[in-house]
């Protein structure tokens, strides 16, 4: 409770300083609208349906991208992490692909998938696969041999050990990877909307608001919503991690 209270105090102080800055002569009027104005704009936007569609479009693209990334990266990580030969064979390719910024592939994605939501989803998948993949591989490296020996000594088959020992044991690491991936996927979805244009989406909303009239209150409202989504997603995943993978932090401890 105390921590939450302090956090709120921090936010309040930030908003107050922002309000003072906006109303001072330090920045040209209209460049950085005060929080009160942005708040009012935000409320109006949320009541008017169109903006909500933009939010839904981005969140949906994000959720699909994260889901696909998990479905691709976890099995792939299990294979790469448990079969050294495959891992050696693919290492160079992986190390070459990983550093490519996904926004650099926007032109290629648009060419291949057109201007619809597919392009941003594919790019977000591409960007968010890596943390999940690497955390899964790392988790298998850390897999305790004795847990495996225990299962083996009871006559558990290799595929079952994979499913009932390796996977649960890797789960806390994988979850950490998913949290990182969730943040990255959101960034990529919004950036792609912003850079490539889209029919719907938060990034598209911000782009439209900033062009022409330069409605900075709308730009900031959109940005604040993007930030809030990111915050809520992370808080939700953190809760999942605490709730279901609490043992991950406590292994080996005795009460």
């Amino acid at each position: 409770m105390r921590a939450a209270f302090r956090g709120l105090v921090g936010v309040a102080v930030l908003l107050l300083l922002w309000e003072l800055l906006s109303n001072s002569d330090l920045v040209p009027p209209g460049y950085i609208p005060p929080p009160t104005v942005i708040g009012a704009t935000l409320v109006r936007l949320l009541l008017d349906g169109v903006f909500v569609y933009d939010v839904i479009a981005s969140v949906l693209a994000w959720a699909i991208a994260l889901g696909v990334a998990i479905a691709v990266a976890v099995p792939l990580g299990l294979v790469l992490g448990s079969v050294p030969a495959v891992r050696r064979a693919t290492r160079t390719v992986v190390e070459l692909m990983r550093p490519i910024p996904s926004v650099a592939m926007i032109p290629l994605a648009i060419l291949l998938f057109g201007g619809g939501p597919e392009a941003k989803i594919v790019l977000a998948v591409y960007a968010s696969v890596w943390p999940i993949l690497f955390n899964t591989i790392y988790a298998l490296d850390e897999l305790d041999e004795q847990l495996v020996d225990t299962a083996r000594a009871f006559g558990t088959s290799k595929p079952r050990i994979m499913a009932t020992v390796a996977l649960p044991s890797a789960a806390p690491f994988v979850m950490t990877g998913i949290r990182t991936a969730a943040a990255i996927a959101l960034i990529v979805v919004v950036s792609t909307e912003l850079l490539a244009g889209a029919t719907l989406g938060l990034g598209q909303f911000i782009l439209t608001a900033s062009s022409g009239g330069g409605r900075m209150d709308l730009v900031f409202a959109g940005t604040v919503v993007a930030g809030l989504i990111g915050y809520l997603v992370n808080a939700g995943l953190e809760w999942v991690q605490r709730r279901f993978f609490a043992w991950g932090a406590r292994t080996g401890e005795t009460v």
Binding site: D144, T150, A153, F154, G155, V165, F245, T251
Partner: peptide
């Protein structure tokens, strides 16, 4: 098939999850 093992290090032989 019908053999069981108990290891020294219980913290690493019980499944924490």
């Amino acid at each position: 098939d019908d053999l069981a093992v108990v290891f020294q290090d219980y913290s690493r032989s019980l499944f924490p999850w």
